[in-house]
Design a protein around this nucleic acid. Structure first.
Length: 571
RNA sequence: GAUUCCGUAGCUCAGCUGGUAGAGCAAUACACUUUUAAUGUAUGGGCCCUGGGUUCGAAUCCCAGCGGGAUCACCA
């Protein structure tokens, strides 16, 4: 054991390494290569209990209760936990009791992976357990898990709750917090349910580029990278919309993609730099059809994930049962402010918004002003799933103009708990109109509207010129949806590895300047009075204290006490 | 980006108006052949986030930094 590792490892980590070495000395490989013939799972054999049934299972040992010549332990596998019963004379039928006394009781630690063979039985107290006849160490754990305990009333003690540690060490979080694992199982169920729904409808899952020469389909700051061979800049996608539409041009009836998108913007409890959107495009449909489709989809997903269309989010009970209310944006604003935006000029909208106490400025166009009013006064009121329809044209450069009103678009957003969950259009397929809308966006961007797109994707326009059938498209924020379905207010809870600032490791190897000062003085004297040394060093009280402690700890210096006199001695 | 709270043993947390650190669980040792937050006895374990300052003396007070949480701002 050298000094360095003594500094880095805790007492328990050192002990576990020593156990590891002892096991090796006994000829037990702590990391065997051979497969373990698992035939059973903890919760399955508990639920379908058969007295005396032979079982073989593997997992982590999560608790140990030593009763002398018998012991109880708990094994945790992917399905859950089951109690194990170890009896010394059955584990070790002969004279040699090493496997029980040494290996099981001393050298195994909580968190170790073991395999056990034995038979099912029920203890006196009524706990279904495995009577172990043979156990095998499958993998040694060198770091103690942050292990919570659950008492008789089901209360959890010493829960591993620190969000920073849970996110940075998600592997440990998943081992000790079963409810966290449950969130991610539901997340995968959601994806499966959606795939199934789309596939049953006859639509095709596709993959489109993550590295894009022009980051289109949304307005957001992209992550930039560089391709060396081509010597060109590339962008991580902020959306996949324009590529999926190209595929509709190519003749597919319906295409969808679960798209990891990347946006170089702020992070908070609802935003992560990379997140997952699902987008689907179906030809010969419009946004009215898409509303029917979306509400059926979400009802199906809620049922598959939670077994019910109802779910709880914070203080709200949400019901995803179709159909959902449909409200135009105009009507919504009338409902909550009494103001009718229809036919109003930019000035009238500006004054109306200002009158409502909304922070406005002169760069805002009609669309932006309407959006602000809606966002401030209406959005938050829609708790149950509600479609808000017919958005102003200016805000929706990829959306078809409304069939009855040229100032509006055929767009809807699905609001749940006052937040947007889905966004859909009757897709704009007029290539000339699309070109003009892109050019308008560039003008807005040049004027300083940082929400407008700065790039024109001419290849996309070319594809539209070949002709795109009438199409409706819809996007869902998957992270946000799973937050609702699992009652989590934070996106970090539904991502395995949310983005975090990297950990910094500062390993102090050399002596600090202050420590050197003290060390240099005492090196000449070998031993001297502690107070004299302090005087000579001329350090502040805190610096002195820290430095002398550090030197003592590193074994370079020793302080001895004789009566009142303190003496420092060089070692 | 702003405000605010937090950072102490492997984990969860105490630590008062400044006097060189405590508990429970976990660990180590011993006892115990159906326990289950097992129990009993004993023992070990701390860069008190980092750096600076005030002070005879700082985990504690002050300043700065780092990391995290919450709220707000931003967010097609």
């Amino acid at each position: 054991m050298n000094i360095m590792s003594a500094f880095e490892l805790s007492e328990q980590e050192i002990q576990r390494r020593e156990s590891l070495n002892k096991l090796r000395e006994m000829g037990i490989n702590p990391y065997p290569a051979d497969l373990y013939p698992v035939t059973d799972y903890a919760t399955v054999i508990k639920d379908k209990f058969e007295e005396g049934k032979q079982v073989c299972l593997a997992g982590r040992m999560m608790s140990q209760r030593d009763m002398g010549k018998a012991s109880f332990a708990e094994l945790q596998d992917s399905s859950g936990r089951i109690q194990l019963y170890f009896n010394r004379d059955e584990i070790c039928p002969g004279e040699d009791k090493t496997m029980y006394n040494q290996v099981f009781k001393k050298l195994l630690d909580l968190g170790d992976f073991i395999g056990v063979k034995g038979y099912m039985f029920t203890t006196k107290v009524g706990e279904t357990s495995v009577h172990v006849q043979e156990f095998t160490l499958l993998s040694k754990s060198l770091k103690p898990l942050p292990l919570p305990k659950t008492d008789a009333e089901g209360r959890i003690h010493d829960a591993f709750t620190d969000p920073e540690m849970r996110y940075r060490q998600r592997y440990a979080d998943l081992v000790v917090n079963p409810h966290v694992k449950e969130i991610f199982i539901k997340r995968t169920k959601l994806f499966t349910a959606m795939r199934q729904f789309f596939n049953d409808a006859g639509y095709m899952e596709v993959e489109t580029p993550v590295l894009q020469p022009i980051p289109g389909g949304a307005a957001a700051r992209p992550f930039m990278t560089h391709h060396n061979a081509l010597d060109i800049p590339l962008y991580m996608r902020i959306a996949n919309e324009l590529y999926l539409k190209r595929l509709i041009v190519g003749g597919f009836d319906g295409v969808y993609e679960f798209s990891k998108n990347f946006r170089n913007e702020g992070m908070d409890r609802t935003h992560n730099p990379e997140f997952t959107a699902m987008e689907i495009y179906v030809s010969y449909k419009d946004y009215n059809w898409m509303m029917d489709f979306t509400e059926r989809l979400l009802e199906h997903c809620a049922m598959e994930v939670n077994g019910s269309s109802e779910t709880t989010f914070g203080e709200h009970k949400i019901n995803f049962k179709a159909p959902y209310k449909r409200v135009t944006m105009r009507q919504s604003i009338i409902d909550f402010t009494g103001f009718d935006i229809d036919g109003k000029s930019e000035d009238e909208l500006f004054n109306a918004a200002k009158g409502m106490g909304i922070a406005v400025d002169t760069t805002m166009g009609k669309g932006k002003l309407i959006d602000e009013i809606f966002g401030e006064k209406c959005e938050g009121n829609y708790i149950q799933p509600t479609f808000i329809t017919d958005y102003p044209k200016e805000m929706s450069p990829l959306c078809k103009e409304h069939r009855d009103n040229p100032e509006l678009t055929e767009r809807f957003e699905l609001m749940v708990c006052g937040k947007e969950v889905a966004n859909a259009y009757s897709e704009l397929n007029d290539p000339i109109d699309q070109r003009e809308r892109f050019e308008e966006q560039v003008r807005l961007a040049e004027k300083g509207d940082d929400e407008a797109g700065q790039f024109i994707d001419y290849d996309f326009l070319r594809s539209l010129e070949y002709g795109m059938p009438p199409t409706s498209g819809m996007g869902i924020g998957m992270d946000r949806l799973i937050m609702y379905l699992t009652n989590n207010p934070s996106i970090q809870e539904v991502l395995f590895f949310p983005q975090m600032r990297p950990e910094v490791h500062t390993v102090k190897v050399e002596l600090s300047d202050n420590e050197k000062v003290i060390f240099d003085i005492i090196q000449k004297e070998k031993t001297m009075d502690l107070n004299a040394l302090k005087m000579q060093a001329g350090l502040s009280g805190k610096q002195w204290d820290l430095s002398i402690k550090a030197l003592t700890k590193q074994g370079l210096l020793k302080v001895t006490k004789n009566g009142d006199a303190l003496t420092a001695e060089l070692l």
